[in-house]
Design a protein around this nucleic acid. Structure first.
Length: 468
RNA sequence: GCUCCCUUCGUCUAGCGGUUAGGACGCAGCCCUCUCAAGGCUGAAACGCGGGUUCGAUUCCCGCAGGGAGCGCCA
């Protein structure tokens, strides 16, 4: 039987980073085994589900490039199917109508907790023969009360549960909408899902799902429960640990491949290897090698990984991505030099496109003030002959390229009997406004003749004013 | 409270009875160097605790402690 996996988020918000990891592992498993991957939207919670969330999920999936062979399938399109199955179960006696009010159930649970028991439905409507007037009932599963269920989990091994600890789960709400438990089971069966790969938080739901499958007479899929991703402090991953919305990583200038590479190493490893292309992930991924312990999200490592991708990116592609990113951020981008040269100059100094934009700010934007500390240190009297000499040399330059620029600087340094550092720093402050930039000759090339000459004059005036 | 899961450097992890417990991020130092990076080298840093089993436990078993999840007409 060919492998078929699915990712089944509920559209109650953006696509979460933890969700992407779950989707990735399901996708990898399907791709690894030449199977198919389904995207299913679990929108049975009609109050919280929104069209905007569905769109956010689709956008997120598209951005990270996790393609699906079927879907998006909406559960809300399938309501008649669940209702029909529930009726069949009623007829067969594997399910029954429950007329208990929410208040009644709440009181029941409160009493059980007070007695130190596991709060659960006590089955009081199991044998009820008559309807209660004016009450629209829910439909509950008549689940076994004795014996055990065992979940054969690909990452945990066998996990067994006592049926006595489980209660009769609600299949259909009183308004005729299926619950999550019924929806997943029916859909996984109808769609022929062979492997259910999902978060660890569903492990204790699995015995209930198996009961439903048995009542339905469908086969039990293979389960694999993935460890959770926690925040840096070990708590549930949330906004305060950095971005949890995938699209925020796009907006911060991360590469989707780097994000996926980071995520695949959370709970999975292949020896000491850190860098995995998509193809390698697919080739090497194995559920048996998935860890059992939860892991913590480390933004620093993601950042490092992103730079590793930045470093080896094709220059033309990177330039295109950088241009698109700047446009996305509303950054004007007439540079003095080609964008390819800019990205080559800054890729070593930026882990993300956002950082690249910040680091190369002066290439695209004019300024009228120098960084105070840098100016104080480098734009002083001793810098005047340097600025003057360089200005003259550059004005006379025929081709504005790194090598001839470098030759000019070298000549000025030699003329003045200065080390290169005494030339580079004042220049750097003059043309960038600060003390940090790529090698000065490259910096000048990339900023462009017009801006460089203008800034040199500005710096000259600045230093002159300080002297007098 | 009850049920289930988990436990190797700060973090991600390798390990699958005998290792100087390896790698990566981060951190520190050095080298390179016109600044900052990138890169190279070096360093500090871990088997939660207690019992077993065994000639020998990080590794297998049992407790404990600590963490996490579930116990909804949410998913």
């Amino acid at each position: 039987m060919p492998v078929k996996t699915r990712f089944a988020p509920s559209p109650t918000g953006y696509l979460h980073i933890g969700g992407v990891r779950t989707a990735l592992f399901s996708w990898l498993y399907a791709r690894r085994h030449g199977g198919s991957f389904v995207l299913r939207i679990e929108d049975t919670d009609r109050e919280r589900s929104t069209a905007a969330s569905i769109q956010a999920i689709l956008d997120g999936m598209a951005w990270v490039g996790l393609d699906y062979d079927e879907g998006p399938i909406l559960q809300s399109d399938r309501f008649p199917r669940y209702a029909a199955l529930a009726e069949e179960m009623l007829a067969r006696g594997t399910a029954y109508r429950c007329y208990c009010s929410r208040e009644e159930l709440e009181a029941m649970r409160a009493q059980q907790v007070a007695r130190g028991e596991n709060p659960r439905y006590d089955g009081r409507c199991r044998e009820r023969k008559t309807a209660v007037a004016g009450v629209s009932p829910v439909i509950r599963l008549r689940s076994p009360r004795a014996g055990t269920v065992v979940v054969h989990d690909l990452v945990r091994g066998d996990v067994s549960f006592n049926n006595a600890d489980l209660d009769d789960v609600i299949l259909m709400r009183s308004d005729g909408v299926p619950t999550y438990h019924f929806g997943v089971v029916v859909d996984d069966a109808d769609m022929g899902i062979t492997h259910v790969i999902r978060g660890d938080d569903h492990l204790t739901n699995t015995p209930r799902h198996i009961h439903i499958q048995q009542a339905l007479g469908v086969s039990v899929p293979t389960y694999a429960h993935l460890p959770m991703i926690l925040g840096a402090d070990g708590g549930r991953l949330s906004k305060r640990h950095g971005a949890v919305n995938v699209l925020e990583y796009r907006d911060r200038g991360y590469f989707p491949d780097a994000l996926l590479n980071y995520l695949v190493r959370l709970g999975w490893a292949h020896g000491d290897q850190e860098l995995f292309s998509r193809e390698e992930m697919i080739e090497l991924f194995d559920l048996a090698a998935v860890n059992t312990a939860a892991s913590r999200f480390d933004p620093d490592k993601l950042r490092w990984l992103n730079q590793q991708y930045m470093l080896v990116r094709d220059r033309r592609q990177l330039a295109g991505e950088f241009a698109a990113y700047m446009a996305h951020r509303g950054q004007p981008q007439e540079a003095g030099s080609a964008l390819e040269k800019v990205v080559d100059a800054y890729r070593e100094r930026a882990a993300t496109l956002e950082e690249m934009m910040q680091a190369s700010h002066y290439v695209f934007n004019d300024f009228n003030e120098f960084d105070e500390k840098s100016a104080k240190q480098h734009l002083k009297q001793s810098a005047l002959p340097v600025l003057t000499g360089v200005l003259q040399g550059l004005q006379a330059l025929a081709t504005w390229e790194r090598e001839p620029i470098h030759a000019v600087l070298q000549a000025v340094a030699a003329d003045l009997g200065l080390g290169f550092g005494k030339v580079g720093q004042p220049l750097r402050v003059a043309v960038t406004g600060g003390a940090v930039s790529p090698p000065i000759d490259i910096t000048l090339e990339v900023i462009g003749r017009e801006r460089v000459l203008r800034r040199l004059q500005m710096a000259q005036a600045f230093a002159q004013a300080r002297v007098s």
